[in-house]
Simulated assay, not measured.
Amino acid sequence: MITTQDGLRKPTTLETIFYFSLSLFINAIGNGLTVAANMGSSMWTASAANIALDFNFSISWVLIFYGAIQILINIALIRRFDWPSILGNIIFISFFAPFVGLFKQFFLTLGISNLPLTVVIALDILGIVMIAIAISIYQRLNLILHPIDEMTNILRFQYFNSNANLAQWVNFSVPAIVILILGLIYQQVVAVNIGTAFALLFQGTLINSADRFIFPRLKHRL
């Protein structure tokens, strides 16, 4: 909803397209930046990067596979098939995953790995902040969500009394377990570093802050 002097109204079609396109773009850039920097990605992206490395898959395909698994988890959480949401999840994944791969390659081509360590860390944290901002925007819009973020929304509002931090930590527990298992088996871990700890500790807080300060007139449509 959009706040107005008279209360709340639904976003217009143009507003919806603007908010969704902007959030998708910001999210893909943020994820591509963190993977290319290799100083720590958000937990799901880091987990996908490790699967891609260990099994020699494209990270875009891993993210698509992850999306399918997350859709099944969301069905279990709400205990029903929400077909409009599932279709929206599929549409989101179809656009999001390839863009992450493209931006990852773009930043690698720019030579991000050759920059001073402090700059790379700063860019990695910037990427995580961008991801949180994007999540905040399209969770509030609540039109088409990535299934990861729909899971956070479900946990936040149906299980944890609107607590974004707790919902985010529970959400992150699944990829954390995947990273731990793969690390023990293959004795190598990528995309887990300072940025991962930053995302684990602060991404929920960043989402809450973005709700308040980034497009504050855009309210949650539950």
Rank of each mutant, 00 (worst) to 15 (best):
M1P: 14
T4A: 09
D6G: 15
R9V: 00
K10C: 13
P11C: 09
P11R: 07
P11D: 04
T13N: 04
E15H: 08
S21V: 10
S23E: 05
F25V: 01
I26P: 00
N31S: 15
L33M: 15
A37C: 10
A48V: 03
A49H: 06
N50H: 06
I51H: 13
L53P: 07
D54P: 11
F57T: 12
F57G: 08
W61K: 15
V62R: 02
I64G: 12
Y66C: 14
Q70R: 03
L72K: 11
A76D: 07
A76Q: 05
R80N: 07
R80A: 13
R80W: 08
P84G: 01
P84A: 04
S85Y: 02
I86P: 02
I90W: 03
I90R: 00
A97W: 01
V100D: 07
V100I: 15
G111L: 14
I112Y: 03
L117T: 14
T118W: 12
T118S: 07
T118M: 14
T118F: 13
V119P: 12
L123I: 07
L123M: 14
I128Y: 09
A132L: 10
A132F: 01
I133V: 15
L141Q: 09
L141M: 09
L143V: 02
I144W: 00
E150T: 14
E150D: 10
R156E: 06
R156Q: 11
Y159L: 00
Y159Q: 07
N163V: 01
A164T: 06
L166W: 05
A167C: 10
V170E: 07
V170K: 10
F172Q: 06
P175I: 06
P175F: 02
P175V: 01
I177C: 15
I179S: 00
L180C: 13
L182H: 09
G183P: 03
I185F: 12
Y186V: 05
Q187Y: 09
V189T: 07
V189K: 01
V190W: 00
V190C: 11
T196F: 12
A197F: 12
L200E: 11
L201G: 08
G204R: 01
N208P: 10
S209T: 15
R212S: 11
P216N: 06
L218H: 05
K219E: 02
